[in-house]
Design a protein around this nucleic acid. Sequence first.
DNA 1: CTTTTAAATGATAACGTTAGCTGATAACAA
DNA 2: TTGTTATCAGCTAACGTTATCATTTAAAAG
Lengths: 336, 336
Amino acid sequence: MVTIKDVARVAGVSPSTVSRVVRGEGKVGKACRAKVQQVIKDLSYRPNINAQALVSKKSNSLGVVIQKVSMSFFGTLACGAEEATKENKYRVLIINAEGSEQEELDAINSLVQHRCSAIVFHSIHCSDATLCELAEKISGLVFINRFIAKVAHRCVWLDNNLGAQEASRYLLDNGHTDVAVITRKDTNPDAQSRLEGILTAFNNAGIQLDSSMIEYGSTADMAGGKEAVRALLAKDKKITAILAYNDNMAVGMVHELHARGIRVPEDISVVGFDDLLIAVACLPKLTTMHYPVREMAHYAANLAIELSTKDNSTGRTHLFMPHLIERDSVANYNAK
Amino acid sequence: MVTIKDVARVAGVSPSTVSRVVRGEGKVGKACRAKVQQVIKDLSYRPNINAQALVSKKSNSLGVVIQKVSMSFFGTLACGAEEATKENKYRVLIINAEGSEQEELDAINSLVQHRCSAIVFHSIHCSDATLCELAEKISGLVFINRFIAKVAHRCVWLDNNLGAQEASRYLLDNGHTDVAVITRKDTNPDAQSRLEGILTAFNNAGIQLDSSMIEYGSTADMAGGKEAVRALLAKDKKITAILAYNDNMAVGMVHELHARGIRVPEDISVVGFDDLLIAVACLPKLTTMHYPVREMAHYAANLAIELSTKDNSTGRTHLFMPHLIERDSVANYNAK
DNA sequence: CTTTTAAATGATAACGTTAGCTGATAACAA
DNA sequence: TTGTTATCAGCTAACGTTATCATTTAAAAG
């Protein structure tokens, strides 16, 4: 590997001068600069990032800690962060931490060890307190899809509650009053907010949503959706529409309903959440709440980089809004 | 940040000893080792990766260059590589390079600059020659989903041809002789191999697949599938089954067929390729060729790490086989 | 007890870069 | 001219490790 000294020797200058040319900082004579640039090109010199990181005590890399890249949602998240990175000459380090709080902490530790100054963290297992503690130590740490009041300026999050309200109102506007909800069994803050939003919206409309109309799936995927809808139908209640926790569960529901000869949306309407590729791949195409993950991740990455360099914790908040995407899985019940 | 010197000072030993304890190499007294380990714990010392990389001239990080993490296929690829990483205490650097040869080369360069010794590269824009050149410079470079005879020991690839043959045979076995093919318009080696495989299989069965039965989509996604199937149907030929280049195009086809009142599989059978999540989300669930990307990426990552450390280019080859997943999108035409 | 050998620890230099200082020109005002 | 600044370039030390060698200490052998 050619080093800065090689370039200096060939160009007949000192390493310092080469360094100045490379970084474009400090005063360098015109002729001298040209000469050095030529040599850099000739030898195709590339500064050693590790040496730079060592001396400058930070690494120009952005860490992304998510549950699993292979999941569409997180892939898109990673992609958004990566985009931001290209604007800043940063590199992206991705770590999957799926299982436990310990795994998440290990991931963060590994990033710190790397002197990764900017980190976008999608945590589901750590407590608010733990996260606050981490935030104190790591200036460029940003939480995505999570809100903690104490460190609000580091949280890039989505108003799940309002999103769920919008989805609910859409069903109401379409004449649906016998609406069921399918959500995940585990305690997940998103699920909680969405459920609250739904209840709020129906309450506001003067409709009491009976708890028997809420059913749970053990997993937040297609299988969970199928399972929950089976349990729901077993109750034999009048249902004209179902709000799903997310698109994956919604698609599972559609499959199960289809298998039983129940048509979507003619017999039962379905609304998803997230607006993943799967929502448009589904037949009928899912009406769903668009979750702007890519934009949020992009924003979060920039924020993390900003926080890691300057330390202005401006009062800014970083709340995003989901919005409804009308497709084909909801029928107008008034028309019937 | 606490450094090795801090640990040494507190433990009352030299940095060398601490280094030995950390790495578990060299002779260290029992009591001394215990003492140092305690101090490491107390101070929660973590070696600086950048310093290690600088002095050892390599960085224990695995680079992954793909088109786009947000695409299901690549997300799964990245995930497989990440898995392998956990076994080796490596970190994963992901770079998206979507557009051009230059972008791909930039990505590799950036990785090299990082002294990233192991790289898994999914190239679609670079020529064989360019790749061979790179391979010569970078010992831990592995190509995934690509075969180049000259550097066969670095190629982890899939037998697309045989896979396509299997898919074709499956249709033949189900009585389909009027089969159309929908593939991508651009010159893509995978598309080429799959098409060849299809033609071979039908030839072997004594059936001449007319070129008018092959239609092309401008993009290898749902839109491309729709576009191609529209063009295909416009020809007004007898078709009982369609082989799609991949699942995304297949799902697009299913949508377009559905919109025209053509039932899948009752009127036309459809076979996909890749076995992405979208294949099982589709209604009907797609019969498709399973592409073991996760396993391949896992394998490729290990291979890259191996090649970067030892330099044994054993004669091993790394060819994987796709296999058919029977689901619901193919009907038995004999039965009709 | 010496002497020899092995084991444990320390000292030093190096990895490639940058920050901060010092010195050498050149440009300008008095 | 002479002094005063700018402007430019080089020198040195430092970042946190590890590899290599040197030294000390302990154990084993004679």
